[in-house]
Amino acid sequence: MAMKPFNAVAFAALLAGGVAIGFAGIFMRLSDVNPIASAFWRMLLAAPVLWGWALMAARGDRAVGLRTDLSTILVLAGLFFGIELGIWHLSLHYTTVANATLLSNMAPLFIALWLWLAHGTRFSRGFLGGMALALIGAVILIGPSAAGGGTHLLGDGLGLLSTTFYAAYQLVIKDARDSYSTARLMAWSTTITAIVLFPFALWMPGAFWPADAAAWLPLLGLALIAQIGGQTVIAYAFAHLPASLASVSLLIQPLTAAIAALAIFGERIGPWQLGGGALLLCGIYFSKRGFK
Rank of each mutant, 00 (worst) to 15 (best):
G130K: 06
W116F: 08
R67A: 14
G129R: 06
L109F: 11
L85H: 00
T121S: 12
T121R: 13
L66H: 06
T72L: 15
L102Y: 06
W88R: 06
L117K: 12
V64A: 14
W114S: 07
L79P: 03
I73F: 00
D69K: 12
G130E: 03
I111K: 14
A112Q: 03
G129W: 07
R67V: 03
L103R: 05
A77N: 09
R122E: 03
L117V: 15
A107S: 15
L115N: 07
G65C: 11
L103S: 05
L66K: 14
L85G: 01
T72G: 15
L117G: 04
N105F: 13
A118V: 13
A98H: 02
F80W: 08
T121G: 00
A100W: 03
A107K: 04
F127D: 01
R67W: 03
T101R: 04
H93K: 14
T72C: 11
L70P: 01
L113W: 15
T121E: 12
T121C: 01
S124N: 12
H89V: 09
Y94H: 11
L115F: 11
T96L: 12
I87L: 13
M106W: 03
V97P: 03
R62T: 10
H89E: 06
W116D: 00
W88P: 00
R125M: 10
S71Q: 14
G86S: 07
E84L: 01
R67N: 07
L66R: 12
L76A: 13
I111T: 11
A63R: 13
G126V: 02
W88A: 03
T121P: 00
A98D: 08
L76M: 11
L103K: 05
